[in-house]
Design a binder for these strands. Structure first.
Length: 869
RNA sequence: GCCUAGGUGGCGGAAUUGGUUUACGCGCACGACUCAAAAUCGUGUGCCGCAAGGCAUGUGGGUUCGAGUCCCACCCUAGGCACCA
């Protein structure tokens, strides 16, 4: 009988589905040990699952099936990150509703998941575009707003002219839109921001103990970009305002020869003298129009002199103030002290505009003519620095800070999260704008709390008239949060989803939806028409899985009941999280931020969501290039599954190499796996038919050989070594070597099987089938059913017997000067002297020892003998 | 430029953590079965050499009886960050 993978796989998938996948359901609370293993849920695109999805999903599936057999209560859920631009764009193009296309894609994804035999707990399935789900997304954002973590600001944001929406910094790739690769414009626009910067330090600190890939931690660390330095002010004789600067190199203060402001700096106008006005105005407007990409691509430094001077507070030297776009308004204070001798950018700038260069750090205490900036801080001493001459730079920083009263300061590269998208297919913001409330707040006299600790501002309420305003409402006058009971705020049905391009969301055109009564005072108000970015829904989905659909269906006003502490404590944290590295500085940073916020809110028991993270490596096309439609090297998993079966595809993807490694796809390689599974099948069938024949009292023609005891022990030992290897390798997620161990066993077993008793043959094979099950669940289920009435899922994971590994003899490598010359099989009883003696007598060895003086003999037990001559 | 991971046969990759390099699989060669092909099975397969033997884990040094593994310097590949003051 041939291995008919299609028939077998369909049979078992049907059987699992018929039981409503109850086999994989997780229990909230159990005596069993819990394990939460999570995949990064996919965006259900029209293309379906690709081989990269299957790689990660198979890995967690193997792990889940393995743990269940070990008797754990495993939570292994799946859902859909279902809001987003592709569905919306497709809907616009094909004149269908984004929901319709999304639902179709979800169904396709779910079917594909079943086709490759993924064992998800489907009772916990969630979809971010489901109002029952996004009501809670809105609830969290509403809480953030109430606690003052959301604020509106008009500032230049990243605008993608092709997607016609604003984007977060995290959504950019070298100044281009990550999705469509268009160049990003800077557009000043009304925009909501989430204050992720309030959490910058905790996001950094809590990273350390996480069991995450070093690279991802490093990427987050760089993205947060904490740097320590000092802040102080320069005064300009012409104006009352002082100019604040931030520096990490206060030791170079005596080398300041100019000051540079970012073109967007608020004091540029005031500092520009009449004769420079026109040139500065031109320069500033030029930089504003330049895209970020163009600004960064400039090799030559540009800038203009304002005509003003400031005084260096350290030495009272007068230095000119320039405007240059190599200084960013978004980092530090937007003003930089120029020390050309010890900063590469300042050096280039000074050279270009013939500004003075004063050396203040010298490696040898002597003066030099610099042809590049000297940036070393670990070597040298200060010169030309008044009372601080001869001080080492690091020590000098603190001394100078005391001397000039500069404050220690910390700055982050991380910026607040631009949270609006001017598009249709996203969660509506649960906010309205009320002119009446705006006026009331405008005329009121109040102070916002200084602290940003959520616990301390928990009950911050501002009473004006009869109205209570939350902190967020006081911070954003006129903006009022919806009441919990009014959630979800559902997306209205619209005729056209086309983005307007004016910076307004398509929702703005639906008057019946936009115009509402203010939930606070009842006056006329208008809804916020921007929607949330795609990242919002994925910030908490792992909590939704743990809570389960019964909880999610609760009303938003039952929030206390919803955040069931016991359930959350039971499942937290996610023990194992597997997904692509592309989420390092987006989803994984956003989700950690929300998690910490929810912890501060008091609803979560711990501060970090994901204990262990593994990134599956990218699978490239067989040409070694990234898979893409334009290259034509995309592998369609459906076709491969049809041809070789899901079990083959699963095992092949795991066999290609270590999970974390990037590796090229090779369709030829899959035939090796296919052959392996065929041999498993043939072996099992042969055994089965022989038994069948016996029962029929017909003589089987092959089992003429007598069982061989030595051979039986050998295979038994091999089996137990395989159990040990496979168990340990699965635990370490080293699936490639777990599979090769299984192949080795099968090869050994087939070689020896005619010399085994039928009972041993059956027994060994059935243990092997249990090992194979997490990798090839369909084939293993089928083979298991030959001789078992129960499902293989009720089988226990095999245990190995260490005692069997005790060897009776060891093979010694005999070396002369470290080079292998021969081997020697020595029984356990043989003494060291005997082994050495026997080794030296081997003709292959003695040849090398003859006529040489023996200097030393190295003996390593059970391993080698080395003669040094 | 900085950070992270990595460089082992024709290819994907193993290597008990300092002890017989190249497991497992692909490919290739030869053989069996077949009228033939496919499939399957068997044997072989790092390089040079008829052989003895020599040489091989990116390159060059070092430590060691012994190095893919440890140390130093450099080169290359992939990914990330980048005018961050």
């Amino acid at each position: 009988m041939k291995y008919n993978h299609n028939q077998i796989e369909k049979k078992w998938q049907k059987a699992w589905k018929k039981k409503n996948f109850r086999l994989w359901q997780a229990e909230n609370f159990s005596k069993k040990k819990k394990f939460y293993i999570l995949d990064m849920f996919p965006y259900p695109s029209g293309d379906g699952l690709h081989v990269g999805h299957i790689e990660g999903y198979t890995a967690t599936d193997i792990y889940s099936r393995f743990l269940r057999m070990q008797g754990l209560n495993v939570l292994h859920p799946m859902g859909w990150d279902a809001f987003g631009l592709p569905a919306e764009n497709y809907a616009i193009k094909n004149k269908v509703h984004p929901l319709a296309i999304t639902q179709k894609n979800i169904n396709h994804f779910r079917e594909q998941s079943e086709t490759i035999g993924l064992s998800y707990d489907w009772t916990r399935e969630v979809s971010t575009c489901d109002p029952e789900y996004y009501k809670w997304t809105q609830w969290i954002v509403l809480k953030m707003f109430e606690k003052g973590l959301a604020y509106q600001s008009i500032r230049p944001i990243n605008w993608c002219p092709s997607c016609k929406t604003g984007l977060a910094n995290e959504d950019l790739e070298n100044g281009r839109c990550e999705r469509c690769k268009s160049e990003i414009e800077r557009r000043p626009m009304r925009q909501w921001f989430l204050k992720i910067t309030d959490y910058a330090d905790r996001l950094l600190q809590d990273l350390k103990p996480l069991n995450w890939p070093e690279g991802v931690k490093e990427m987050q660390k760089n993205w947060i970009g904490k740097s320590f330095g000092y802040e102080f002010e320069f005064a300009s004789p012409g104006i009352p305002e002082k100019i604040k600067v931030f520096t990490t190199r206060l030791d170079t203060i005596f080398g300041v020869t100019f000051l540079v402001l970012a073109p967007e700096h608020p004091l540029v106008n005031k500092l520009t003298t009449a004769e420079n006005r026109e040139r500065v105005r031109q320069y500033v407007s030029q930089s504003k129009n330049k895209t970020e990409l163009a600004r960064e691509a400039e090799k030559e430094k540009t800038g203009v002199f304002t005509g003003s001077y400031v005084v260096n507070p350290a030495n009272h030297k007068r230095v000119p103030v320039w405007v240059a776009d190599y200084v960013m308004m978004t980092y530090g204070t937007g003003a930089v002290m120029g020390v050309p001798a010890h900063d590469e950018r300042d050096f280039a700038f000074a050279k270009k505009f013939a500004l003075e260069i004063i050396e203040v750090i010298s490696p040898d205490g002597q003066e030099h003519l610099l042809d590049e900036a000297y940036t070393d801080v670990d070597d040298g001493v200060l010169i030309h620095s008044g009372p601080f001459d001869r001080t080492p730079p690091k020590l000098a920083q603190e001394k100078i800070a005391n001397f000039m009263n500069a404050k220690k300061a910390v700055h982050y590269k991380l910026e607040d999260w631009g949270f609006d998208r001017q598009r249709y297919w996203g969660e509506p913001m649960p906010l309205v704008y009320c002119e009446n409330c705006h006026n009331k707040l405008k005329n009121a006299n109040y102070q916002l709390p200084i602290t940003n600790e959520i616990s301390k501002i928990e009950n911050w309420k501002l009473k004006i008239g009869n109205l209570g305003f939350s902190l967020g409402e006081a911070m954003n006058p006129g903006w009022i949060g919806l009441k919990e009971k009014d959630l979800p705020l559902t997306l209205p049905k619209v005729k056209y989803y086309e983005p307007t391009g004016t910076g307004e969301s398509p929702l703005a055109n639906i008057e019946s939806w936009v115009n509402v009564k203010c939930p606070n005072c009842g006056s006329k108000a208008k809804r916020e028409t921007n929607t949330m970015p795609q990242w919002a829904g994925s910030c908490w989905y792992y909590l939704a899985f743990a809570l389960g659909n019964k909880q999610i269906k609760l009303k938003a006003s039952q929030a206390k009941k919803f955040w069931d502490r016991k359930i959350l404590e039971y499942w937290s944290p996610v023990d194992f999280y597997v997904g692509g590295v592309e989420h390092a500085t987006r989803h994984l940073i956003y989700a950690r931020f929300w998690h910490k916020f929810l912890f501060d809110l008091g609803v979560l028991p711990d501060v970090e969501p994901f204990a262990k993270l593994v990134n599956q490596g990218l699978i490239s096309g067989s040409d070694g290039e990234k898979m893409s439609k334009s290259r034509g090297n995309v592998v369609n998993p459906d076709e491969i599954v049809k041809k070789f079966g899901a079990d083959s595809v699963r095992i092949y993807e795991m066999f290609m190499g270590p999970l974390e490694a990037a590796k090229p796809w090779d369709t030829n390689g899959i035939v090796g796996i296919y052959r392996f599974l065929n041999r498993v099948w043939q072996t099992a069938i042969n055994l089965q038919q022989k038994t069948y024949n016996k029962k029929q009292k017909t003589r089987s023609n092959q089992s003429t050989n007598k069982p061989d005891k030595e051979e039986t022990n050998k295979i038994k030992r091999l089996l137990h070594q395989t159990i040990k290897k496979v168990t340990e390798d699965i635990k370490a997620m080293q699936f490639n070597t777990a599979i090769s161990a299984q192949m080795e066993f099968l090869n050994g077993f087939i070689d020896a099987k005619t010399r085994l008793s039928e009972k041993d043959r059956k027994d060994f094979l059935s243990q092997f089938i249990l090992l194979l099950y997490p990798f090839a669940p369909h084939l293993a289920s089928e083979v298991w059913s030959f001789s078992n009435k129960t499902l293989i899922e009720s089988g226990k994971w095999p245990k190995f017997d260490e005692a069997l590994f005790k060897k009776q003899s060891f093979v010694y490598a005999i070396q002369v000067n470290g080079k292998i010359r021969d081997t020697l099989t020595a029984p356990l009883s043989m003494s060291q002297e005997e082994i050495v003696k026997k080794s030296s007598m081997s003709p292959k060895v003695s040849k090398w020892l003859q006529g040489k003086k023996l200097k030393q003999t190295i003996f390593v037990k059970d391993k080698i003998v080395n003669f040094v001559v």
